[in-house]
């Protein structure tokens, strides 16, 4: 018997992994994904519980078109926020950018905790369900993942994707070649935010409750681990990392309290054991045409 809920969680992990991967594909370490995830989730939770026009019913069910609309709106709001914030923070380099995005995550978390309409520490609960069982969330989550993967794959042959790789390899050289590096970095940042926002909207319905803890510094780290342990040279890496590392703490549940220690050990020792991640450039080579475009 496969646990459908766990599968949905794993797909959400893979989606968030891709969201962290996108800025990294331009060489920018951004940990802002949890902030955009939280924004998308909070928007969906608010709209579906407070806005009757979306058609939440008393029995806790929710019309599918409204759910899909929320995925779009969650992504759009997160993308808009990324457009505003990205213009400011993407001037920063390296660790400064990472810390600025951690600051963004913390500001969003404290805002959700303290705003008068987001339910405080308890959060928003009783979010209506578009599907009667957890299995119902599998098709939309899978569709979102395939869409994200398709976009990443298309990027490899598009001018934007090639510019992203150029900026990652050498930003100064890319700028000298006439690539608008800031625009390229901003595009990747916004794409990453849109994906995180839509994923948040999906997760809010799936989890049924939503609070400030959903987007914290801890989650930022875990998501980065998806990318690093999976491999940061192709979008397949964060997908694999997200699937495996989301499943791991759940599969370890039988061992009790030690499970989070073991999870920490995997993150601690993983980079030394697999410095290039599980999906290495050599593996991509062997995957042939499908992975060919993914190499730098």
């Amino acid at each position: 018997m496969i646990d459908h809920g766990l599968l949905v969680q794993m797909l959400i992990g893979a989606l968030l992994g891709i969201s962290v991967y996108l800025p990294l594909a331009t060489g920018q370490l951004s940990l802002a994904t949890p902030a955009f995830y939280a924004v998308g989730g909070t928007l969906a939770a608010l709209l579906s519980t407070r806005w009757a026009a979306l058609g939440a019913r008393v029995d806790g069910s929710f019309p599918l078109p409204s759910f899909l609309l929320e995925l779009v709106l969650g992504g759009a709001l997160a993308g808009l926020l990324a457009l505003l914030v990205g213009r400011l923070v993407l001037r920063l380099q390296g660790i400064y950018l990472a810390i600025a995005t951690i600051a963004l995550v913390e500001i969003v978390r404290v805002a959700i905790l303290n705003l008068p309409f987001t339910g405080g520490a308890v959060g928003i609960f009783g979010i209506p369900q578009p599907f009667p069982t957890a299995a119902g969330y599998l098709p939309p989550a899978l569709a979102l993942l395939l869409l994200a993967g398709w976009v990443c794959q298309r990027l490899e042959v598009m001018a934007l994707g090639r510019a992203m790789a150029a900026v990652r390899e050498d930003e100064l050289a890319a700028r000298c070649m006439g690539i608008a590096t800031t625009r390229v970095k901003l595009s990747a940042f916004v794409l990453s935010a849109v994906l995180a926002g839509s994923t948040g909207a999906l997760a809010a319905h799936f989890l049924n409750t939503w609070n400030a803890r959903q987007g914290s510094f801890d989650t930022a780290v875990t998501m980065l681990a998806f990318v690093i342990l999976g491999g940061s040279r192709s979008w397949l890496g964060p997908v694999l990392g997200g699937l495996l590392l989301t499943a791991l703490p759940e599969l370890l549940r039988p061992v009790g309290d030690v499970r989070l220690v073991l999870f920490g050990l995997v993150i601690l020792l993983g980079p030394a054991l697999f410095p290039q991640g599980l999906v290495t450039p050599a593996l991509l080579e062997r995957l042939g045409r499908w992975g060919e475009g993914s190499r730098p």
Binding site: V221, L260, V261, G264, L265, I267, L268, G270
Partner: peptide, 10 residues
């Protein structure tokens, strides 16, 4: 960054 965060998590 990852390994030190992992150490902290442990």
């Amino acid at each position: 960054l990852i390994t030190s965060l992992g150490a902290g998590l442990v």
